[in-house]
Design a protein around this nucleic acid. Structure first.
Lengths: 232, 232
DNA sequence: TCAAAAGTGTTCAGCGTACACCCATGT
DNA sequence: ACATGGGTGTACGCTGAACACTTTTGA
């Protein structure tokens, strides 16, 4: 197993996972970071990470690490990129496979987070990060932007029920630009994967805004049978 | 080094590179495959691959492996995805980072290729491949398709001088559908990154087709200063 | 009554798509 | 002269972008 017959002469390397964990709260796109409590760079801010075991797939490891920090299992998680520069980790040669996760910030287990020294940071107010983590974050942002153009992943970041102004704020945060209210609504509604509910959310206005929910069935139908996103 | 002070307790893994090498010839999109001459799966068709050394970055390893097989150094090479299922390799636990390369098939060193038992296969006539290599190829195809929509990487697959009918055949091969000649030319010329030359290529018709060349300066200018591809 | 956010339509320009004929040349 | 591939222009529909006013309601 560990010593393979034919591969024996080749090197082995440490392989780690680093997770860019996105959340959306208070109208802002945020990242969950931890204060490292082990060397090297102890005490500095870092992405949540961990090593890949010999009997663990990359995806499994990514889910494990995410769950350790957030308590969440069923979240959107996607591989981003493998970082393999020789000196990217100051301690040893570590190849890191970065993943990014989209979580509903309300579901997040803040007790677990505290235990790991985790905090949420607005995406445009990040502290300095160790190693190449900033580069990972930048790539994750680009990926998320592209992704939201062609697939409605944004819903992963909102509660089950959300308002259109909320959704718009999310998109504005992701794309870092303001959008026209009318065009935004038209576009979102025309896609046909959100349903209007008969409830209003009055948290952010006196008048209240209608709540909507994501319709996974309609989405799946369109995604497979569909003229939708046919170039992905 | 190898035994890190703080990471010692963690597992190490074999890390390999597998390369999907695209070429374009005879109006067809092709892949360069090798017949494995070592176990496991000796004698079966496979992507070109190799192990990542302890003192070698992922990109370096990818370039090294590509050069071993093709003799080419300056080619378009991009990381595709990291494959980490526990049993993807039948011999041992190997994490593979897949890269895809676009090469000008004329530049390819066929002697080197022969030495490795390499052959070109049309993309729609591939033999069975070992491990998860077929999945890698499929992902590479999707990536290439998406890429050519938003960036003119197609030129990497053609000789320095090429004709518009050639370019169109390439795009048709990549997207696996026929395109309208007039629309295709209009689109390509309107982008403004190819220059018409005063030469004709008479290889494929009596009348001859004008040769064009890719204009890297114009492309770089548009890519940076540009309203071009602003969502990438 | 007023401040603050929610909600609603129309117009225009640009882009992708459909579509058919003439041109140049070697055999 | 003819067969073969190269080259050209127009019309239409869709989509994204710009743009301003009314509605509701709690304080």
């Amino acid at each position: 197993m560990s010593g393979s017959l034919h591969y024996k002469k080749h090197d082995k390397n440490y392989v780690a996972i680093d997770s860019i964990i996105f959340g959306f709260d208070d109208g802002k796109l945020k990242l969950l970071l931890i204060k490292r409590n082990f060397p090297p760079c102890k005490g500095q801010w870092s992405l949540m990470g961990g090593f890949v075991g010999e009997k663990e797939s990359l995806d499994k490891a990514a889910y494990r690490i995410l769950e350790q920090l957030t308590g969440l299992k069923e979240v959107y998680l996607e591989q981003l990129y493998a970082y393999g520069d020789i000196n990217r980790d100051t301690e040893a040669r570590v190849i890191s496979v970065a993943y990014y996760a989209l979580i509903k910030i309300d579901d997040y287990d803040s007790e677990l987070g505290k235990k790991h020294g985790a905090s949420w940071f607005a995406i445009d107010e990040l502290p300095p990060l160790i190693f190449d983590h900033k580069i990972m974050v930048q790539k994750a942002m680009r990926r998320l932007r592209r992704k939201t153009i062609i697939q409605p992943v944004g819903f992963e970041l909102l509660p089950e029920k959300f308002t259109l102004p909320q959704l718009q704020k999310l998109y504005e945060a992701i794309h870092q630009k303001e959008m026209d209210k009318r065009n935004f609504r038209k576009r979102m509604l025309s896609i046909g994967v959100i349903n209007k509910l008969n409830e209003k959310d009055k948290n952010s206005s006196k008048r209240g805004a209608y709540l909507y929910e994501f319709d996974k069935e309609k989405y799946d139908y369109l995604a497979t049978n569909g003229n939708l996103f046919d170039f992905v």
